[in-house]
Amino acid sequence: MAWIYLAIAGLLEIAFALGMKWSQGFTRPLPGVATAVLGIASIWLLSVSLRALPVGTAYAVWTGIGAVGTALVGIVFLGDAASPARVACLAAIIGGLIGLKLLAGDG
C-alpha cells in the first residue's frame, strides 16, 4: 500500500508543479489555492508512505515521478523541447526509479 500512496503523491506533485505555472506565481487566487492544496496533499501522502518505505528511496521516487511527469506533460501539452538528449535523460531517471523500486527490499 505504501507504494500506491507514493505513486499518488508523485502524481499530485506533477499537478502541483503545473499549478505553480497556472497560478502565475500565486497571483491568481483559485489556481493558487488549488496548487497549495495539491502540494500539501502530495507531501502528506509521501509522509504516509514513509511509514513503510526507506526515506531515501521514497523521496527519490517521489521527486523522480514529479520531475519526469512534469517534463513529459510539458513536452506533450505545453510545447517544451523534446530533444533526443532530453528524452534519454528522462529515460535514465525512469530506469533509476525502477531500480530503486526493485532494490527497496520491501517486496
Rank of each mutant, 00 (worst) to 15 (best):
V33W: 09
A34N: 09
A34T: 11
A34H: 08
A34G: 13
A34L: 15
T35D: 09
A36Y: 14
V37H: 14
V37W: 14
V37E: 08
L38V: 06
A41C: 14
I43R: 02
I43K: 01
W44H: 07
W44Q: 05
L45D: 04
L46R: 04
L46W: 05
S47C: 07
S49E: 00
S49Y: 01
R51T: 00
R51W: 08
A52R: 11
L53K: 01
P54E: 13
V55Q: 10
G56K: 11
T57P: 00
T57R: 06
T57I: 03
A58Q: 03
Y59T: 07
Y59H: 06
A60S: 00
A60N: 01
A60I: 02
V61H: 01
T63G: 03
T63W: 05
G64I: 05
G64E: 05
I65T: 05
G66C: 03
A67L: 12
A67S: 03
A67M: 08
A67D: 02
V68P: 03
G69R: 05
G69A: 04
T70I: 01
A71H: 03
A71C: 04
L72T: 01
L72C: 10
V73A: 15
G74H: 06
G74N: 09
I75H: 00
V76P: 10
F77M: 13
F77V: 14
L78G: 09
L78E: 13
G79H: 06
D80Y: 12
A81W: 08
S83H: 12
S83K: 10
S83G: 15
A85M: 15
A85W: 14
R86N: 08
C89R: 14
C89P: 04
C89V: 12
C89A: 14
